[in-house]
């Protein structure tokens, strides 16, 4: 569904490209985590996958990028609202300020698309339900917590029913409760068949929720595979990725001879339980 071919992008007046020779294919319904150190190109990839490059950010573009056969390099962002949605790190900046309740905020995009009122009501109700915001529908978006505001931002994008949802560090300003709310919402969305592309530093959350992880370094794809393949690999730290606490514990246990190391190290709690549990039983 998403096809990126030999994509290289340089910001205006930048001395070198922010993305270099990116080649990716992302199937519908996948939950893809994009990881990497600061400056690796995560945000730039998010802007490219949501059409903001080159429509909003000009600069030098080479290669091609398409969603469902639609060339993102030639389509204005406003025309992509039903195809791709983008959620930013700062929930405050995504609230329009032009509507006074959460329900009206969610309807803003549909109003701009000229959808009939009956359809709007049904789609807003559905988005409220999916993001767990039904109880807050008549509150001001500015009267909500950070996590709730970020869910409003996500809801106001998914109400447009984009085939692809791109999120650029949506939990970076949230506490653990807010981050959990966001990830639960994303799980619900992938359950409904949406493709989710999430740039994120919280690797434990990525490991627990993503189907696939793409690691960037210096604007290039440095690793691409399952969370376990990418995040538990010894070379992950070279990419600027801090291994999850489960990987670190398993590595330490293996180094000190507490457990025998065979196969990949765990990256999630479930995998760690299996890793240590299986070996303890062997030991017993």
């Amino acid at each position: 569904m998403i096809a990126v071919r030999d994509f290289t992008y340089t910001y205006p007046a930048a001395p070198r490209p922010a993305l270099i020779d990116i080649n990716l294919e992302i199937a519908p319904g996948q939950f893809v985590g994009v990881v990497g150190a600061n400056g690796a190109g995560k945000s730039t990839l998010c802007y490219a996958l949501s059409g903001f490059i080159p429509d909003f950010y000009r600069g030098d573009v080479k290669g091609s990028l398409s969603v469902a056969g639609r060339d993102l390099c030639k389509t204005p962002v406003a025309e992509l609202a039903g195809e791709v949605g983008l959620v930013f790190a700062n929930p405050f900046n995504q609230i329009t300020g032009a509507r006074f309740t959460v329900r009206e905020e969610l309807a803003f995009g549909l109003e701009n698309l000229g959808r009939p009122r009956d359809e709007m009501v049904a789609r807003v109700d559905e988005a409220l339900r999916l993001t767990g915001l039904t109880e807050l529908a008549d509150r001001s978006p500015y009267a909500l917590s950070g996590g709730q505001q970020q869910r409003v931002a996500i809801a106001s994008v998914i109400v447009l029913r984009p085939k692809v949802l791109v999120l650029d560090e949506p939990t970076s300003q949230l506490d653990p409760v807010g981050a959990r709310e966001v990830f639960e919402t994303l799980d619900a969305l992938t359950g409904e068949g949406a493709t989710v592309i999430l740039a994120e530093h919280k690797l434990e959350w990525i490991a627990a929720h993503a189907d696939r992880v793409i690691a960037l370094r210096g604007g290039r794809v440095a690793a691409d595979g399952t969370p376990r393949e990418v995040l538990a690999d010894a070379s992950a730290e070279e990419l600027g990725l801090m291994p999850t606490r489960y990987t670190l514990a398993a590595r330490l246990a293996a180094t000190q001879g507490v457990v025998k190391r065979d196969g990949p190290l765990p990256v999630t709690l479930d995998e760690a339980r299996e890793f240590f549990g299986g070996r303890q039983r062997e030991g017993a």
């Binding site: 949501s50 903001f52 909003f56 204005p76 962002v77 406003a78 025309e79 609202a81 949605g85 983008l86 930013f88 900046n93 995504q94 329009t96 329900r103 009206e104 309807a107 803003f108 995009g109 549909l110 109003e111 701009n112 698309l113 000229g114 959808r115 009939p116 009122r117 709007m120 009501v121 807003v124 931002a153 106001s156 994008v157 447009l160």
Partner: peptide
């Protein structure tokens, strides 16, 4: 950018909730 992602600059008729 957030406004653009929600079709604010799209031309054509608008509706209202």
């Amino acid at each position: 950018m957030a406004l653009d992602a929600r079709a604010f600059s799209r031309s054509g008729p608008k509706t209202s909730l």
